[in-house]
Design a protein around this nucleic acid. Structure first.
Lengths: 216, 216
DNA sequence: CGATATATAGAACAATTGTTCTATCAAGGA
DNA sequence: TCCTTGATAGAACAATTGTTCTATATATCG
């Protein structure tokens, strides 16, 4: 059972939650819902909320006060349609590998940047890093710049990736090319030459999808 | 006392609230805030929240669990409305002045880029240009990059501006410094030296506020 | 009819959560 | 030096709030 049609009461509940959330900035309590809909018993509200959750109309967080949110539907609360919030997971500099966030890790970064979805084609697996130092100027990336990356271990020819070079023990941002069994890493700065490396010594850590430089 | 500058802790708190609200759909509790920022005492969190409310950064509803919301600012509860649509008015290259859009001109560009308001501090008089050619690599700006500029004829020291140099007949992006009656234009690339010019021969066309580079 | 599922009420409970009070410590000012 | 202010900690308290349990009524189905 997924989407049953709503009872009159359940519609009222949804409606009230929507209004309350909009006006208060946070969801109502069970008792507030009951009061607005004319239910004296908290258990009945709870009962209906569970129904609504089963129906996919909202999500609940158990044991959490006001722990519910409307499903992202026609006019969901957040409405964050075209704004992506990308975790700023750390710094990137030449002398250390990229701090790639773990796959299933539900980390909670206290910092994040927001960009419009239109700036990237695929919003999956993105994270952001701030560049530390001048070591990546050959990638046209300056101290303080923010690079948005997608986590991936494989690179296709021509993509700009962050790689860790075992031999040199450094992280660098380069355009990646696999040619005749060796890797050519081409700086973005057209005035500079490529470096070559053995594929075994190159570890791709992510693909650069966006570089942001904010001026003071 | 209205708008004091925030302490490090208070910034963290605001940041956490923003992130939490975004991810959960409702605000955090006092104890959740304390935990995330590293405060063991609920009274200290309460203390800082009151400070923040006095400063106008958020609103609180007394005696209400999770009863706080961020002030309608950079990204208030909804998060919507903080997307700026910036007209892409043309190309910028070395051999021509910047195509600055007219002041009151209500032009209707067919192209535009969208960015979140949080990426710029003042959303007034912005326009965007796409860089053509490799002539601005000394400004760490590559062919294809998009520069977002604010229209202005005056520059303050240290700002990165687009200037037209009468003598050389070229447009360039440099950090601007007025020193002892002459203009020093400093490339963003720290490995390159400045050029000097007579103020009469330097025409500031706009201030660079953001550089965007999208990777294929 | 009897059985089962649905919807509702009321009450009690336990956990969550905001508030308040006292105390400590450092930095200035009088 | 003493006193005030700002910032922090800890604990205790009281209100809020989600959960659970029992009970009742109504319907539907065999």
């Amino acid at each position: 059972m997924a989407k049953d049609k709503l009872s009159e009461r359940q519609s009222e509940i949804l409606n009230f939650i929507r209004t309350f959330q909009h006006e208060s900035g946070y969801p109502p309590t069970i008792r507030q819902i009951g009061e607005s809909v004319g239910i004296s018993s908290t258990s009945v509200v709870n009962y209906n909320l569970n129904k609504l959750e089963k129906g996919g109309y909202l999500t609940r967080d158990l044991k959490v006060s006001r722990g519910l949110r409307l499903a992202h539907g026609p006019d969901a609360l957040g409405g964050l349609g075209d704004v992506l919030r990308i975790p700023l997971v750390g710094r990137i500099f030449a002398s250390a590998p990229v701090p790639v966030p773990g796959a299933a890790t539900s980390f909670a970064p206290d910092e994040a940047i927001e960009i419009t979805r239109s700036l990237v084609k695929d919003p999956e697996n993105l994270f952001a890093l701030q560049v530390r130092g001048d070591s990546m100027i050959d990638a046209m990336v300056n101290d303080g710049d923010i690079v948005v990356m997608r986590r991936q271990e494989q690179a296709r020819n021509g993509e700009m990736v962050a790689v860790w070079l075992n031999e040199r023990e450094e992280t660098t941002l380069k355009h990646f090319f696999l040619e005749n069994g060796r890797v050519r890493l081409q700086p973005a700065n057209p005035t500079m030459g490529p470096i070559y490396a053995d594929p075994a010594n190159v570890r791709v850590q992510g693909k650069v999808v966006l570089v942001l430089r904010q001026m003071k």
